[in-house]
Design a protein around this nucleic acid. Structure first.
Lengths: 202, 202
DNA sequence: GTCTATAATCTGATAGAC
DNA sequence: GTCTATCAGATTATAGAC
Protein backbone atom coordinates (compact mmCIF):
# COMPACT_ATOMS: atom_id res chain seq x y z
CA UNK A 1 0.00 0.00 0.00
CA UNK A 2 0.95 3.61 -0.55
CA UNK A 3 3.63 2.58 -3.01
CA UNK A 4 3.36 5.83 -4.90
CA UNK A 5 6.34 8.12 -5.30
CA UNK A 6 6.71 11.35 -3.37
CA UNK A 7 6.08 13.33 -6.56
CA UNK A 8 2.63 11.96 -7.09
CA UNK A 9 1.59 12.30 -3.50
CA UNK A 10 2.73 15.91 -3.30
CA UNK A 11 0.86 16.92 -6.41
CA UNK A 12 -2.33 15.41 -5.05
CA UNK A 13 -1.94 17.05 -1.68
CA UNK A 14 -1.20 20.36 -3.32
CA UNK A 15 -4.32 20.23 -5.43
CA UNK A 16 -6.37 19.23 -2.42
CA UNK A 17 -5.04 22.13 -0.36
CA UNK A 18 -5.56 24.55 -3.23
CA UNK A 19 -9.19 23.51 -3.58
CA UNK A 20 -9.68 23.81 0.18
CA UNK A 21 -8.32 27.33 0.04
CA UNK A 22 -10.61 28.11 -2.89
CA UNK A 23 -13.62 26.94 -0.89
CA UNK A 24 -12.63 29.04 2.11
CA UNK A 25 -12.15 32.09 -0.11
CA UNK A 26 -15.61 31.57 -1.59
CA UNK A 27 -17.02 31.22 1.93
CA UNK A 28 -15.60 34.65 2.85
CA UNK A 29 -17.23 36.13 -0.24
CA UNK A 30 -20.58 34.63 0.64
CA UNK A 31 -20.28 35.78 4.25
CA UNK A 32 -19.61 39.34 3.08
CA UNK A 33 -22.64 39.24 0.79
CA UNK A 34 -25.23 37.41 2.88
CA UNK A 35 -23.92 37.45 6.45
CA UNK A 36 -21.75 35.00 8.33
CA UNK A 37 -24.57 32.80 9.50
CA UNK A 38 -26.22 32.59 6.11
CA UNK A 39 -23.69 30.54 4.19
CA UNK A 40 -25.32 27.48 2.65
CA UNK A 41 -23.31 24.59 1.30
CA UNK A 42 -25.26 24.77 -1.96
CA UNK A 43 -24.39 28.42 -2.58
CA UNK A 44 -20.84 27.79 -1.49
CA UNK A 45 -20.41 24.83 -3.83
CA UNK A 46 -21.98 26.80 -6.65
CA UNK A 47 -19.31 29.49 -6.33
CA UNK A 48 -16.52 26.99 -6.84
CA UNK A 49 -18.30 25.01 -9.56
CA UNK A 50 -19.27 21.99 -7.49
CA UNK A 51 -22.34 20.32 -6.12
CA UNK A 52 -22.93 20.77 -2.42
CA UNK A 53 -22.15 17.17 -1.61
CA UNK A 54 -18.64 17.44 -3.03
CA UNK A 55 -17.70 19.92 -0.31
CA UNK A 56 -17.61 16.94 2.05
CA UNK A 57 -14.53 15.68 0.24
CA UNK A 58 -12.73 18.70 1.68
CA UNK A 59 -14.48 19.48 4.95
CA UNK A 60 -16.16 17.13 7.41
CA UNK A 61 -18.91 19.57 8.25
CA UNK A 62 -20.05 23.14 7.87
CA UNK A 63 -18.43 24.06 11.17
CA UNK A 64 -15.11 22.79 9.84
CA UNK A 65 -15.36 25.50 7.17
CA UNK A 66 -15.99 28.15 9.82
CA UNK A 67 -13.01 26.79 11.71
CA UNK A 68 -10.77 27.15 8.65
CA UNK A 69 -12.04 30.71 8.20
CA UNK A 70 -11.35 31.50 11.85
CA UNK A 71 -7.84 30.02 11.59
CA UNK A 72 -7.10 32.11 8.50
CA UNK A 73 -8.34 35.28 10.22
CA UNK A 74 -6.40 34.57 13.39
CA UNK A 75 -3.19 33.97 11.41
CA UNK A 76 -3.67 37.26 9.56
CA UNK A 77 -4.24 39.02 12.87
CA UNK A 78 -1.06 37.59 14.38
CA UNK A 79 0.94 38.55 11.30
CA UNK A 80 -0.27 42.15 11.44
CA UNK A 81 0.39 42.34 15.18
CA UNK A 82 3.94 41.14 14.64
CA UNK A 83 4.51 43.63 11.85
CA UNK A 84 3.21 46.52 13.93
CA UNK A 85 5.38 45.76 16.93
CA UNK A 86 8.47 44.98 14.87
CA UNK A 87 8.16 48.23 12.95
CA UNK A 88 8.50 50.04 16.28
CA UNK A 89 10.76 47.50 17.96
CA UNK A 90 13.38 50.17 18.72
CA UNK A 91 10.99 52.85 19.90
CA UNK A 92 10.64 53.81 23.53
CA UNK A 93 7.87 56.28 22.81
CA UNK A 94 4.74 54.68 24.26
CA UNK A 95 2.40 56.95 22.33
CA UNK A 96 4.10 56.16 19.03
CA UNK A 97 3.97 52.41 19.62
CA UNK A 98 0.36 52.35 20.75
CA UNK A 99 -0.86 54.70 18.04
CA UNK A 100 0.71 52.45 15.43
CA UNK A 101 -0.88 49.41 16.97
CA UNK A 102 -4.26 51.09 17.35
CA UNK A 103 -4.31 52.26 13.76
CA UNK A 104 -3.25 48.84 12.57
CA UNK A 105 -5.91 47.09 14.64
CA UNK A 106 -8.81 49.35 13.76
CA UNK A 107 -7.92 49.25 10.08
CA UNK A 108 -7.58 45.46 10.18
CA UNK A 109 -11.07 45.24 11.64
CA UNK A 110 -12.87 47.86 9.58
CA UNK A 111 -11.26 46.64 6.35
CA UNK A 112 -13.19 43.40 6.76
CA UNK A 113 -16.07 43.69 9.24
CA UNK A 114 -17.16 40.12 8.66
CA UNK A 115 -13.74 38.85 9.66
CA UNK A 116 -13.90 41.07 12.75
CA UNK A 117 -17.29 39.61 13.56
CA UNK A 118 -16.07 36.03 13.28
CA UNK A 119 -12.85 36.59 15.23
CA UNK A 120 -14.04 38.86 18.00
CA UNK A 121 -17.77 38.49 18.37
CA UNK A 122 -18.54 34.82 17.69
CA UNK A 123 -22.00 35.28 16.27
CA UNK A 124 -22.56 31.77 14.95
CA UNK A 125 -24.68 29.73 17.35
CA UNK A 126 -23.04 26.43 18.19
CA UNK A 127 -19.69 27.22 16.61
CA UNK A 128 -16.59 27.35 18.77
CA UNK A 129 -13.19 27.61 17.12
CA UNK A 130 -10.81 24.73 17.69
CA UNK A 131 -7.71 25.18 19.84
CA UNK A 132 -5.47 25.11 16.74
CA UNK A 133 -7.49 27.79 15.01
CA UNK A 134 -7.48 29.90 18.16
CA UNK A 135 -3.78 29.63 18.95
CA UNK A 136 -2.52 32.54 16.78
CA UNK A 137 -5.04 34.90 18.38
CA UNK A 138 -3.74 33.97 21.82
CA UNK A 139 -0.19 34.55 20.63
CA UNK A 140 -1.11 37.99 19.31
CA UNK A 141 -2.61 38.99 22.66
CA UNK A 142 0.58 37.73 24.30
CA UNK A 143 2.65 40.02 22.09
CA UNK A 144 0.58 42.94 23.35
CA UNK A 145 1.12 41.93 26.98
CA UNK A 146 4.87 41.63 26.44
CA UNK A 147 5.13 45.00 24.76
CA UNK A 148 3.08 46.73 27.41
CA UNK A 149 5.18 45.18 30.15
CA UNK A 150 8.28 46.55 28.41
CA UNK A 151 6.82 50.00 28.94
CA UNK A 152 6.07 49.31 32.60
CA UNK A 153 2.38 48.61 32.04
CA UNK A 154 2.11 45.21 33.66
CA UNK A 155 -1.25 45.82 35.33
CA UNK A 156 -3.79 43.49 33.66
CA UNK A 157 -6.48 46.12 34.17
CA UNK A 158 -4.49 48.53 32.02
CA UNK A 159 -4.33 46.02 29.21
CA UNK A 160 -8.07 45.38 29.53
CA UNK A 161 -8.76 49.11 29.40
CA UNK A 162 -6.68 49.29 26.24
CA UNK A 163 -8.49 46.44 24.50
CA UNK A 164 -11.83 47.97 25.49
CA UNK A 165 -10.83 51.30 23.98
CA UNK A 166 -9.86 49.68 20.67
CA UNK A 167 -12.93 47.45 20.64
CA UNK A 168 -15.19 50.43 21.23
CA UNK A 169 -13.76 52.55 18.42
CA UNK A 170 -13.92 49.58 16.08
CA UNK A 171 -17.41 48.55 17.06
CA UNK A 172 -18.90 52.03 16.77
CA UNK A 173 -17.21 52.53 13.41
CA UNK A 174 -18.56 49.28 12.01
CA UNK A 175 -22.04 49.51 13.56
CA UNK A 176 -22.82 53.18 13.07
CA UNK A 177 -20.70 54.46 10.20
CA UNK A 178 -19.78 51.50 8.00
CA UNK A 179 -17.34 52.46 5.29
CA UNK A 180 -16.76 55.87 6.85
CA UNK A 181 -14.17 57.20 9.31
CA UNK A 182 -16.20 58.96 11.99
CA UNK A 183 -14.59 56.88 14.77
CA UNK A 184 -11.36 56.04 12.97
CA UNK A 185 -10.56 59.75 13.07
CA UNK A 186 -10.62 59.58 16.87
CA UNK A 187 -7.93 56.90 17.18
CA UNK A 188 -5.05 59.33 17.78
CA UNK A 189 -7.04 61.27 20.32
CA UNK A 190 -8.12 58.09 22.13
CA UNK A 191 -4.54 56.83 22.28
CA UNK A 192 -3.40 60.17 23.67
CA UNK A 193 -6.12 59.98 26.32
CA UNK A 194 -4.99 56.47 27.26
CA UNK A 195 -1.30 57.35 27.38
CA UNK A 196 -2.00 60.45 29.49
CA UNK A 197 -3.96 58.28 31.89
CA UNK A 198 -1.40 55.51 32.34
CA UNK A 199 1.55 57.92 32.64
CA UNK A 200 -0.30 60.20 35.05
CA UNK A 201 1.90 61.17 38.00
CA UNK A 202 5.13 59.91 36.51
CA UNK B 1 -70.50 49.02 10.57
CA UNK B 2 -68.58 49.14 13.85
CA UNK B 3 -71.81 49.42 15.76
CA UNK B 4 -70.29 47.77 18.82
CA UNK B 5 -70.03 49.63 22.10
CA UNK B 6 -66.75 51.03 23.37
CA UNK B 7 -66.68 48.42 26.12
CA UNK B 8 -66.61 45.46 23.79
CA UNK B 9 -64.08 46.98 21.49
CA UNK B 10 -61.74 47.82 24.35
CA UNK B 11 -61.85 44.32 25.79
CA UNK B 12 -61.01 42.83 22.43
CA UNK B 13 -58.17 45.25 21.83
CA UNK B 14 -56.84 44.63 25.31
CA UNK B 15 -56.78 40.90 24.81
CA UNK B 16 -55.12 41.33 21.44
CA UNK B 17 -52.44 43.58 22.87
CA UNK B 18 -51.89 41.25 25.80
CA UNK B 19 -51.35 38.31 23.47
CA UNK B 20 -48.99 40.35 21.33
CA UNK B 21 -46.98 41.20 24.43
CA UNK B 22 -46.98 37.52 25.41
CA UNK B 23 -45.59 36.58 22.01
CA UNK B 24 -42.86 39.22 22.22
CA UNK B 25 -41.92 38.04 25.71
CA UNK B 26 -41.66 34.47 24.44
CA UNK B 27 -39.52 35.70 21.53
CA UNK B 28 -37.05 37.25 23.99
CA UNK B 29 -36.86 33.97 25.87
CA UNK B 30 -36.18 32.05 22.70
CA UNK B 31 -33.56 34.56 21.59
CA UNK B 32 -31.76 34.20 24.92
CA UNK B 33 -31.78 30.43 24.60
CA UNK B 34 -31.01 29.88 20.93
CA UNK B 35 -29.67 33.17 19.63
CA UNK B 36 -31.44 36.13 18.04
CA UNK B 37 -31.32 34.79 14.51
CA UNK B 38 -32.59 31.36 15.45
CA UNK B 39 -36.13 32.10 16.48
CA UNK B 40 -38.58 29.97 14.50
CA UNK B 41 -42.28 30.68 14.38
CA UNK B 42 -42.97 27.07 15.34
CA UNK B 43 -40.94 27.27 18.54
CA UNK B 44 -42.32 30.69 19.29
CA UNK B 45 -45.91 29.60 18.85
CA UNK B 46 -45.23 26.50 20.94
CA UNK B 47 -44.17 28.66 23.88
CA UNK B 48 -47.46 30.52 23.91
CA UNK B 49 -49.61 27.46 23.22
CA UNK B 50 -50.39 28.16 19.60
CA UNK B 51 -49.66 26.78 16.18
CA UNK B 52 -47.17 28.73 14.13
CA UNK B 53 -49.76 29.97 11.68
CA UNK B 54 -51.77 31.70 14.39
CA UNK B 55 -48.92 34.10 15.00
CA UNK B 56 -49.95 35.79 11.76
CA UNK B 57 -53.11 37.01 13.48
CA UNK B 58 -50.83 39.20 15.60
CA UNK B 59 -47.85 39.98 13.40
CA UNK B 60 -47.67 40.39 9.64
CA UNK B 61 -44.27 38.75 9.39
CA UNK B 62 -41.32 37.52 11.36
CA UNK B 63 -39.56 40.86 10.94
CA UNK B 64 -42.57 42.57 12.53
CA UNK B 65 -41.81 40.55 15.67
CA UNK B 66 -38.18 41.70 15.62
CA UNK B 67 -39.45 45.23 15.18
CA UNK B 68 -41.68 44.93 18.24
CA UNK B 69 -38.70 43.56 20.21
CA UNK B 70 -36.53 46.43 19.03
CA UNK B 71 -39.19 48.97 19.98
CA UNK B 72 -39.50 47.45 23.45
CA UNK B 73 -35.73 47.52 23.95
CA UNK B 74 -35.42 51.07 22.69
CA UNK B 75 -38.20 52.25 25.03
CA UNK B 76 -36.47 50.57 27.98
CA UNK B 77 -33.20 52.23 26.99
CA UNK B 78 -34.79 55.68 26.83
CA UNK B 79 -36.47 55.15 30.18
CA UNK B 80 -33.18 54.21 31.85
CA UNK B 81 -31.39 57.13 30.23
CA UNK B 82 -34.01 59.52 31.55
CA UNK B 83 -33.79 58.04 35.03
CA UNK B 84 -30.02 58.31 35.10
CA UNK B 85 -29.93 61.94 34.02
CA UNK B 86 -32.83 62.98 36.24
CA UNK B 87 -31.24 61.38 39.27
CA UNK B 88 -28.30 63.73 38.78
CA UNK B 89 -30.26 66.64 37.34
CA UNK B 90 -28.93 69.03 39.98
CA UNK B 91 -25.33 67.87 39.87
CA UNK B 92 -22.60 69.95 38.28
CA UNK B 93 -19.96 67.29 38.89
CA UNK B 94 -19.16 65.91 35.44
CA UNK B 95 -17.49 62.79 36.80
CA UNK B 96 -20.46 61.97 39.01
CA UNK B 97 -22.94 62.38 36.17
CA UNK B 98 -20.94 60.38 33.64
CA UNK B 99 -20.07 57.61 36.07
CA UNK B 100 -23.74 57.18 36.87
CA UNK B 101 -24.62 57.09 33.21
CA UNK B 102 -21.77 54.70 32.37
CA UNK B 103 -22.69 52.29 35.13
CA UNK B 104 -26.32 52.43 34.10
CA UNK B 105 -25.52 51.84 30.45
CA UNK B 106 -23.08 48.97 30.93
CA UNK B 107 -25.42 47.26 33.38
CA UNK B 108 -28.37 47.72 31.03
CA UNK B 109 -26.37 46.01 28.29
CA UNK B 110 -24.71 43.22 30.24
CA UNK B 111 -27.95 42.38 32.06
CA UNK B 112 -29.41 41.32 28.74
CA UNK B 113 -26.74 40.73 26.09
CA UNK B 114 -29.29 39.66 23.51
CA UNK B 115 -31.13 42.95 23.85
CA UNK B 116 -27.79 44.75 23.49
CA UNK B 117 -27.10 42.75 20.36
CA UNK B 118 -30.45 43.61 18.79
CA UNK B 119 -30.34 47.30 19.72
CA UNK B 120 -26.72 48.12 19.03
CA UNK B 121 -25.26 45.55 16.68
CA UNK B 122 -28.09 44.65 14.25
CA UNK B 123 -27.03 41.09 13.60
CA UNK B 124 -30.14 39.89 11.76
CA UNK B 125 -29.58 39.92 8.01
CA UNK B 126 -32.32 41.80 6.23
CA UNK B 127 -33.89 43.31 9.33
CA UNK B 128 -33.94 47.06 9.79
CA UNK B 129 -35.97 48.58 12.61
CA UNK B 130 -38.82 50.86 11.58
CA UNK B 131 -38.64 54.57 12.25
CA UNK B 132 -41.20 54.27 15.07
CA UNK B 133 -39.25 51.53 16.77
CA UNK B 134 -36.04 53.49 16.42
CA UNK B 135 -37.34 56.83 17.67
CA UNK B 136 -36.78 56.30 21.43
CA UNK B 137 -33.15 55.34 20.81
CA UNK B 138 -32.60 58.60 18.93
CA UNK B 139 -34.24 60.50 21.78
CA UNK B 140 -31.93 58.83 24.30
CA UNK B 141 -28.87 59.83 22.32
CA UNK B 142 -30.25 63.35 22.20
CA UNK B 143 -30.52 63.43 25.99
CA UNK B 144 -26.83 62.57 26.14
CA UNK B 145 -25.95 65.37 23.74
CA UNK B 146 -27.97 67.88 25.77
CA UNK B 147 -26.40 66.87 29.03
CA UNK B 148 -22.90 66.97 27.64
CA UNK B 149 -23.50 70.40 26.16
CA UNK B 150 -24.62 71.58 29.60
CA UNK B 151 -21.15 70.68 30.82
CA UNK B 152 -19.50 72.53 27.95
CA UNK B 153 -18.83 69.39 25.92
CA UNK B 154 -20.45 70.37 22.66
CA UNK B 155 -17.78 68.88 20.39
CA UNK B 156 -19.38 65.96 18.52
CA UNK B 157 -16.03 64.16 18.57
CA UNK B 158 -16.10 64.17 22.36
CA UNK B 159 -19.52 62.56 22.39
CA UNK B 160 -18.32 59.95 19.87
CA UNK B 161 -15.28 59.21 22.02
CA UNK B 162 -17.59 58.72 24.99
CA UNK B 163 -19.92 56.32 23.17
CA UNK B 164 -16.90 54.38 21.90
CA UNK B 165 -15.56 54.03 25.43
CA UNK B 166 -18.86 52.67 26.73
CA UNK B 167 -19.34 50.41 23.72
CA UNK B 168 -15.85 48.98 24.18
CA UNK B 169 -16.26 48.16 27.86
CA UNK B 170 -19.64 46.60 27.16
CA UNK B 171 -18.51 44.64 24.15
CA UNK B 172 -15.43 43.20 25.82
CA UNK B 173 -17.45 42.27 28.89
CA UNK B 174 -20.08 40.44 26.87
CA UNK B 175 -17.71 38.82 24.37
CA UNK B 176 -14.86 37.79 26.64
CA UNK B 177 -16.21 37.47 30.17
CA UNK B 178 -19.95 36.85 29.94
CA UNK B 179 -21.59 36.90 33.34
CA UNK B 180 -18.42 38.23 34.98
CA UNK B 181 -17.23 41.74 35.79
CA UNK B 182 -13.69 41.91 34.39
CA UNK B 183 -14.50 45.00 32.30
CA UNK B 184 -17.39 46.31 34.41
CA UNK B 185 -14.83 46.85 37.19
CA UNK B 186 -13.00 49.29 34.90
CA UNK B 187 -15.95 51.61 34.36
CA UNK B 188 -14.98 54.10 37.08
CA UNK B 189 -11.41 54.17 35.89
CA UNK B 190 -12.45 54.64 32.27
CA UNK B 191 -14.78 57.49 33.19
CA UNK B 192 -12.00 59.16 35.18
CA UNK B 193 -9.70 58.82 32.18
CA UNK B 194 -12.31 60.41 29.95
CA UNK B 195 -13.08 63.27 32.34
CA UNK B 196 -9.37 63.98 32.83
CA UNK B 197 -9.00 64.13 29.06
CA UNK B 198 -11.89 66.48 28.32
CA UNK B 199 -11.12 68.83 31.23
CA UNK B 200 -7.43 68.92 30.43
CA UNK B 201 -6.08 72.48 30.50
CA UNK B 202 -9.11 73.98 32.17
C1' DG C 1 -58.74 33.76 16.29
C1' DT C 2 -57.39 29.27 15.85
C1' DC C 3 -57.10 25.48 13.42
C1' DT C 4 -55.73 21.84 9.35
C1' DA C 5 -53.64 21.44 5.16
C1' DT C 6 -50.33 22.64 2.22
C1' DA C 7 -47.35 25.28 -0.73
C1' DA C 8 -42.76 26.16 -2.01
C1' DT C 9 -38.37 26.18 -0.64
C1' DC C 10 -34.32 25.67 1.88
C1' DT C 11 -31.18 23.08 5.05
C1' DG C 12 -26.99 19.81 6.28
C1' DA C 13 -25.77 15.38 5.51
C1' DT C 14 -25.30 10.31 3.65
C1' DA C 15 -25.09 6.21 0.20
C1' DG C 16 -23.34 4.54 -3.59
C1' DA C 17 -22.34 4.63 -8.79
C1' DC C 18 -18.56 5.92 -11.72
C1' DG D 1 -13.21 13.33 -6.24
C1' DT D 2 -17.44 14.25 -8.33
C1' DC D 3 -21.64 13.01 -9.35
C1' DT D 4 -27.05 11.50 -8.83
C1' DA D 5 -30.39 10.40 -5.73
C1' DT D 6 -32.22 10.91 -1.50
C1' DC D 7 -33.06 11.51 3.42
C1' DA D 8 -35.14 13.77 7.03
C1' DG D 9 -36.02 17.43 8.31
C1' DA D 10 -36.42 22.71 8.74
C1' DT D 11 -38.26 27.28 7.25
C1' DT D 12 -41.90 31.32 6.30
C1' DA D 13 -46.15 32.03 4.66
C1' DT D 14 -51.04 31.40 2.57
C1' DA D 15 -55.95 29.40 1.92
C1' DG D 16 -59.87 28.26 3.83
C1' DA D 17 -62.83 25.55 7.28
C1' DC D 18 -64.90 26.39 11.71
Amino acid sequence: MSGTTNDVRDRRAERHDATRAEIVAAAWELARDHGLGDISLRDLAGRVGMKAQSIYSYFDSKDAIYDAMFAEGARAFLERSRDAFERRSDSDDLFEVLRDRAEGFTRFCTDDPVRYQLLFQRPIPGFEPSAEAYAPAVEALDLLHQRMTRHGLDDPAVVDLWTALLAGLTDQQISNDPGGDRWLRLVDRAVQMFVDHVTKGS
